[in-house]
Design a protein around this nucleic acid. Sequence first.
DNA 1: CGCGCACTTGAACATGGTCAAAGGGCGTGG
DNA 2: CCACGCCCTTTGACCATGTTCAAGTGCGCG
Lengths: 242, 242
Amino acid sequence: MPDSLKSAANGALEPFDRFVETILSFDCDRATRDAFRRLAYRISAEPGESMRLDDSRDSIVFMASGAAKLVAHVSDDRQQVVAFHFAGDLVSVPQRNAHAYELCALTHSVALAFPAAAYMALADAEPALLRTMIDRTLLALNRSREKSVALGRKTAPERVTGFIASMADRIGTREGAGCTIRLPMSRRDIADSLGLTIETVSRQFTDLRGEGVIETSGRSAVRVPNLAALRARAAGPNGPAD
Amino acid sequence: MPDSLKSAANGALEPFDRFVETILSFDCDRATRDAFRRLAYRISAEPGESMRLDDSRDSIVFMASGAAKLVAHVSDDRQQVVAFHFAGDLVSVPQRNAHAYELCALTHSVALAFPAAAYMALADAEPALLRTMIDRTLLALNRSREKSVALGRKTAPERVTGFIASMADRIGTREGAGCTIRLPMSRRDIADSLGLTIETVSRQFTDLRGEGVIETSGRSAVRVPNLAALRARAAGPNGPAD
DNA sequence: CGCGCACTTGAACATGGTCAAAGGGCGTGG
DNA sequence: CCACGCCCTTTGACCATGTTCAAGTGCGCG
């Protein structure tokens, strides 16, 4: 498949153009932009495929299109999805150390990868970009903290409800008081993200369906008739924590 | 207690001097340094006390001395310790939103707090500082991800062993192949950090003691005769994940 | 020195996991 | 276009890890 066709599917934009538009959206001088272009390498991956990164050093990955999961491998039969990422996201993937991290495509994805050290060296010349990096890293940190709270202190029903609410915010399409979501990840991915098993996730979906909080059609489509009702359930039986 | 005495206990260094030494350790011009000094407000807290931050906006807190826990409150009877922080750490504390976050002293602590937005505005003039901020935020992100892995996919024995190994690295004093740790946090704090109950944590300590992996004296002193043996246990029965 | 609170220990219980099997979406090939 | 079949998902029954509830122990502060 020629690149021209692929970029047409992505809104007629080359991955690097999308990167410039999303990340270098300040007054970035031409030389710097070209330096980033030379540093970047293009990655595309099909569903289930791992994004081939240089795992001998930290990487920074810009998701030009698609959806991916960042997975930490604990042992052969245990893995934890640390985060989900979608088009426009900037993902920091650490060099393999204590746990092996892997960025794995959920749908057909195109991304740009950079060696983190060289990327940061370039960014040093552009304070505006450094600010963007901080803001995005802080966003990732806050999401990660919220995940810790869920994994450490929430029940299975709360985790699943919270997950659906979060996906509604990130990739749902609003419809009045409700929302429709096309989930790109499998029940296993959801389970590995929430620290549960596929069976438990499935049972929670069934319960939510029974209570009319969600409707499903097929494996991936979820409709939330009333977002407020969903969020109320996600906070637990006592309501919001303040 | 006059400030002069307190700073003497902290190695004869005022909190702000410690901040300059640790964070503004690049060639920072005088005007900027003074601007940071005017922006900072000094906080000191005794064990169990919450650090009084302006919770209407994000804060950046520099721990000049002591130890603290960053706690997310889920409901009255459920809380999650999101991170522990020690002298020299820079903590990003979000404005209260979904969950109420609180930075709470474990030992007598002195800190400098800044409104995050104003702090970042000042930092914009100093790329070297922005880099420091990114590096430290990434460190926090990686620690948070590792916590997610532990909370989502590790057993109680693995979590407790991993916790002790982590504390050995951060605040332990090496002694040949071993290490001695003075834990500033209670069993409850450990439990709230690991997503367990105090009883489970206590039982794990008892087991580790029985197997000779740790020795304890009093409530807070832990000696690890062999750090390698501890780390081997922390990785789980299958050994490291690669 | 003695009191209180943190910690430890024990026994019953529950949430979610494991094991097993049936059902159904969705891609493939006819 | 429809039928087949794989594999993801759902459902059910049993089980285990960690929680809950309850009682005892001892560290450390006043």
